[in-house]
Nucleic acid binder design. Structure first.
Length: 307
DNA sequence: AAGACGAAAGTGGTTGA
DNA sequence: TCAACAACTTTCGTCTT
């Protein structure tokens, strides 16, 4: 472990931290707090099958990254301030080179530079892991190369790319959250998201309700026990085919509501609904279905009798 | 008084002719 | 392109705690 790496939960001081590398999240098992969700994935993105391939795969030099407009490989010819101290021919030669370099950076590159700055802004606002940011940058780059940005605002395509990247990495954010972070209309993001994924042939798995549980539970300050119970409920719900066709956030919210009830950490439907970005009515409907299909009634009655 | 519940009408998106 | 449709929302009245 590196110096300064989080070992204790800042909320409750617990040392029971659960690390989820794929999502880039560290979750405190005691209080459910998401301690750090911007951790860097130190793993390799490939697997080695024998020593031969592992030799070829070894990396040297600075990492290549899609979050720089030129994948981090370009050369900048100085700053304006560099010309002081240069005289006459030196100076004009410098300016000429600089101008020339400016010209060869095509419209695409300039667009990318701007867009990636925006992408970083939104991504850091949402505290997205680096891996998602990279993926989004890759998607955006492809979109620009295919000319999919034409007729759409750059920001909306950035938001759409981020949304797609989140889904693919199973660390979903809701359209509402993306919308708030990027100040783009929710529908607009949804539209460009669908368009871009279709045009680029990107397949996105339908999002899983339990992917939302950790984040919602943390916002609601529910303990880890309640959280894992909610995941159990969701598993059972999926087996009972209660999840298909329904909005994943609504189901996740309902499962959290029930499990909070069972564990005596009651939250109002309103509170859960606000965090999950659905209405109370939706929670009620899902809640009702959950009670009907899974025999949770006994457990709830038990709790009620205790009082 | 606040929260939970349910009915009814409205909205935006998908699907299939 | 249009209509039917399912999921979800909004709104509002009633019941429960």
């Amino acid at each position: 472990m590196r110096e300064g790496f989080v070992k204790k939960c800042p909320e409750c001081g617990g040392i029971n931290l659960f690390i989820n590398k794929e999502k880039g999240e560290i979750i405190c098992k005691d209080c459910g707090l998401v301690v750090e969700d911007k951790m860097v994935d130190f793993g390799q993105e490939w697997r080695d099958f024998d020593s031969d391939t592992s030799q070829r795969h070894r990396r040297t030099g600075a990492p290549m990254t899609y979050t720089q407009f030129d994948q981090g490989l370009g050369t900048e010819i100085g700053q304006k301030s560099d010309i002081y101290g240069l005289g006459g021919p030196e100076r004009s030669r410098f300016l000429r080179l600089r101008k020339w370099q400016y010209r060869i950076s095509t419209a695409i590159e300039r667009n990318l530079k701007l867009a990636l700055a925006e992408l970083k802004r939104v991504s850091s606002y949402l505290k997205l892991p680096k891996s998602v940011e990279e993926e989004a940058a890759r998607i955006y780059t492809l979109a620009v190369q295919r000319g999919l940005v034409r007729g759409r605002s750059m920001e909306s395509v950035v938001a759409g790319a981020l949304y797609a990247a989140c889904r693919r990495h199973e660390v979903p954010r809701t359209l509402d959250e993306l919308s708030e972070a990027s100040s783009i209309d929710k529908k607009e993001i949804g539209r460009t998201y669908r368009f871009v994924t279709r045009e680029l042939g990107i397949t996105v798995l339908p999002s899983n309700p339990s992917d939302y549980v950790a984040r919602f539970a943390s916002s609601l300050k529910l303990n880890a026990e309640t959280q894992s119970k909610a995941v159990d409920i969701l598993d059972a719900a999926q087996k009972a085919e209660l999840t298909s066709g329904r909005g994943p956030t609504g189901i996740a919210a309902a499962a959290l509501y029930v499990s909070a009830l069972i564990h005596g950490e009651k939250r109002t439907q309103r509170e859960v609904a606000d965090i999950a970005g659905v209405t109370e009515v939706t929670i009620r409907n899902r809640y009702k279905e959950l009670l009907e299909e899974l025999d949770l009634e006994k457990e709830i009655k038990k709790i009620k009798k205790k009082r």
